[in-house]
Design a protein around this nucleic acid. Structure first.
Lengths: 180, 180
DNA sequence: TTTTCCATGTAACTCGTTACATGATTTC
DNA sequence: GAAATCATGTAACGAGTTACATGGAAAA
């Protein structure tokens, strides 16, 4: 559903063909969406079938290039967009973190190995945080807020991971015995 | 994949039949997993087919009750469990937040309505945070860490939401004109 | 001359959900 | 007598992904 919203939202700003759309999404939105090319093409056709998009004439057809299907949003599409926007903004999704399942059974691992894996995870999260911080563009406008969302989230993940690591370390110490 | 891990992890502690397993998951793990009953039954059979689980005799068959299939983990299941645990702990998933798509197009909404929706969202998040804070049990052990994960996450969501609200408010003020 | 770019798709598949089916037994 | 509890499942569906297909043009 947020995928439809994305496509409608982008086409609301400018008519585009699938290839350009996918290019833009890959370059500028990859950090916040996971829509894949075939899905985008499929959804474009479906949204057009449903009357939310309409195929328009290619404003600058390039010769010796495959023909392209340029889409524009229709008035019904605008209405649909607003509807999805409100729905999506109100929906409070309960996210699930796959890693939680590992944490729940962390005692099944030798503490040493657990710590090594957790530190590796920490490094990976830090790397991602850096790469998002260094992302060019998105310096202004609403997209900045989305970048901030991911930065805030990664920082919170790191805080929590530190807590997990501390916990494993105390477990480890307890196991060695406080008598040592 | 984290679903398999969950089932194997729980059956590692104690032999169980599907119904009890589902009961436990609904009562004590609903806040961190979204596995549904039919999925659990299906996965139990599949894991058994693959040799990771084995059907064992019901230790206390109740009379006048439907027969139940009690599963226990096999040595291969133990190995599989450890493998999934390591895999899952190392995998750094790039989460996508559906709400980001709304935020990216927030300017399409009248600022007043946007603020109302954002405040409603804030209230919903706060309610969830409270309900998790008041969750009984999970006070000790690894599950406590998982609860903390969700608390930390919701707090970070609230921080970020406040930032979004502030941004919309400045946008609104700018639009009214700094001359007023 | 092989690779990359442009541009669109399809077919098969995976994973999971929803809604429903069954049937005895206990509780209201 | 109706509803909830116990216990297991199936069938149909939906959303999305992967891998592949196509075919000309430009760049390496």
């Amino acid at each position: 559903m947020h995928r439809q919203l994305l496509l409608l939202g982008l086409l609301r700003r400018e008519d585009m063909h699938g290839y350009r759309l996918n290019e833009f999404i890959e370059r500028d939105m990859a950090f916040c969406t996971d829509i894949k090319k075939p899905t985008a093409y499929y959804l474009l056709d479906r949204l057009a079938d449903e009357g939310y998009l309409a195929e328009v004439d290619d404003p600058e057809p390039a010769d010796g290039r495959p023909p392209r299907k340029t889409f524009g949003i229709t008035p019904e599409g605008e209405r649909r967009f607003a509807e999805l926007l409100r729905q999506n903004l109100q929906a409070v999704d309960a996210p699930t973190f796959p890693v939680d399942m590992s944490i729940a059974f962390l005692d099944a691992l030798p503490p040493g190995e657990a710590l090594a894996l957790l530190h590796a995870r920490e490094a990976a999260l830090r790397a991602r945080l850096e790469s998002i911080r260094e992302t060019p563009g998105h310096r202004s406008g609403a997209l900045r807020l989305v970048v901030d969302h991911h930065i805030t989230y990664l920082e919170c993940e790191l805080d929590w991971l530190a807590e997990v690591i501390a916990w494993v370390e105390t477990q480890d110490a307890d196991q060695e015995g406080p008598s040592t």
